[in-house]
């Protein structure tokens, strides 16, 4: 068993990718928690696709990809917010339009600029090809974003719970929105390598939504989400290593399986275990019987 666990660690590429997996496994659920409670889970997907034009240009100009991706992501966030506040267009339609247009622009730019950018690894991730630079980049982003969340926790809590109330009491809601969008974009950049832009939304949403079914406070949702995120990343990588499967989809499907378990067995929300359901009643009867036996 121990050998089974330690064998992959002998390879440098596995070590690097496991470290990235842990970082991303912690970071994504923390930011994803905020997306979920604002009913903006799909924004993760939008931002993930919207970074493509920036990546293409940065690759062409040989500047740091992070800068290009960040600029592109923030512009798209601005456009969505503008469409939403200044016109009668609703947020879901604004997101759908921006996301597909930016993605199309990105694909076009890759062709026009004759980039050697590998669209496939960008779309689906290439965690086994990570370098030490990638590890450092992801590590720094993770620590910076987590620190910001810690510093602005109570303001973000207020903002995501009751935006109008936060604005009424004098919190700078526009700056909070912008800062939060920056955090989402950075999180996506950090996770791109691990699962790719098509699947990153799953890491943002999967572990956090699983935790959502199990706890009753926002910080608990983040904490448990991070634990589940790390479990998903690491087990996904091991499955990928031993069964020769693509790593991104393996991580995503582990995270999805954990969600299904919580959906069925969560004490308060589980389909089989919550009070009032067939399963819930059965477990209640069994408990009563046990109590009776104990009393006798």
């Amino acid at each position: 068993m121990l050998h089974w666990l330690t064998e992959p660690i002998h390879f440098e590429f596995m070590r690097n990718s496991l470290i990235i997996g842990v970082f991303v496994g912690i970071l994504c659920p923390v930011i994803g928690t905020y997306l979920i409670v604002q009913r903006m889970a799909l924004l993760g997907d939008v931002m993930a696709h919207a970074v493509l034009p920036g990546v293409a240009v940065a690759f062409f100009l040989r500047v740091e990809i992070l800068v290009g991706a960040f600029t592109s992501g923030i512009i798209s966030a601005f456009l969505i917010a503008w469409l939403r506040s200044q016109t009668r267009v609703k947020v879901d339609a604004a997101m759908a339009l921006i996301f597909s247009s930016f993605f199309a622009l990105g694909v076009l730019l890759i062709t026009l600029l004759r980039n050697k950018l590998d669209l496939h690894s960008f779309l689906f991730g290439d965690i086994l090809g990570v370098t030490m630079t990638d590890v450092w980049r992801t590590g720094i982003i993770t620590i910076a974003v987590l620190l910001l969340v810690k510093l602005f926790y109570k303001e973000l809590l207020f903002y995501t719970f009751d935006r109008l109330g936060a604005q009424a009491i004098g919190l700078p809601v526009d700056w909070i929105y912008l800062g939060f969008m920056a955090a989402v974009t950075l999180t996506i950049i950090a996770s791109m390598q691990a699962v790719g832009i098509v699947l990153v939304v799953s890491l943002l949403v999967g572990p956090a939504i699983t935790a959502y079914l199990l706890v009753k406070e926002l910080h608990q949702m983040m904490g448990l989400g991070a634990v589940l995120g790390v479990i998903s990343s690491i087990s996904g990588m091991y499955i990928s290593y031993y069964y020769n499967l693509p790593s991104g989809p393996s991580i995503v499907l582990v995270s999805c399986s954990l969600f299904i378990l919580a959906l069925l067995f969560s004490p308060s929300q589980g389909l089989l275990t919550r009070p009032g359901t067939m399963g819930g009643r059965t477990s209640w009867i069994l408990q009563q019987l046990q109590n009776q036996k104990r009393n006798n």
Partner: peptide
Amino acid sequence: QIDWDYPI
């Protein structure tokens, strides 16, 4: 205006 399912 409030999401009563918010984890709080």
